[in-house]
Amino acid sequence: MSTPKIEIDRVGQTFRVRSQETGREQDFVALDNVSTTVRAGEFLTIVGPSGCGKSTLLDLISGLTTPTSGEVRINGRRVEGPGTDRGVVFQQYALLPWRTALGNVEFALESATDLGRKERRARARDYLQLVGLEGFENRRPGELSGGMKQRVAIARSLACEPEVLLMDEPFGALDAQTRESLQEELLQIWRRTRTTIVFITHGIDEAVYLGQRVAVMSAHPGRIREELAIPFSAESDDDDVRATAEFAHYRHQIWTLLRHDQQAAADRAEEAAHV
């Protein structure tokens, strides 16, 4: 078997935080001994309650932060910092308001590639077309809807042709309809490009619909609790996959996992209150 695309090897991340009750500094364990691997071309979704460290995990893969213990490897090489082999799509789009849609995509190419001005423009156009924004090239972010902004951000990441696309709740701020159509289009893009995708969400439906595999995380400390392979998964072209009994089965399984976790957390809190 070849080397996995991404290896997360016994990664731990601890922050120093000031306790609200005592005012003293203490360690907060955001991630505790997390290990998993992602194959090349795989679509992995990570679902978990807020505060379970899923965004922290993504920051570690992108290289924005370094783990307290363990390491992350891409193609067998240890991640030391950000690199253009990995693209990141943020929930808040992070577009530059003074540049047009086209300008925002070109912006990524200016630093990530050594293309000339004309080639950059042509490639930026291609990728805007890929995300369905033909005709909106010269609009500024202020003149685009939330869904369109996120399309620009996706085009910007894809234009650098990264090996891995990291998405941090990218559709979290969008309305339900826009979210569904973007999910569908993301799958189409993934099928076409076969980019390895790690997608973070707190929506169970979204995780099951998109992922070939779903990693369910639990909080305090952040751990991967279970990984489920989704057999029908992102491969199927069946539009109404959400209505199948299989879909419901996996959704329920994840829901149960998350709920137990929540229950346990509530019990712990109660216990602590009695002490």
């Binding site: 992108s62 924005l64 910092g81 950000p82 690199g83 253009t84 990995r86 693209g87 990141v88 943020f90 808040q92 789009y93 992070a94 530059l96 912006f107 990524a108 630093s111 990530a112 650098c160």
Partner: peptide, 14 residues
């Protein structure tokens, strides 16, 4: 916004 600065780092800007 912090993400704007992070975006710059992620895209490999010096």
């Amino acid at each position: 916004p912090t993400v704007r600065l992070e975006m710059g780092r992620v895209l490999g800007l010096s």
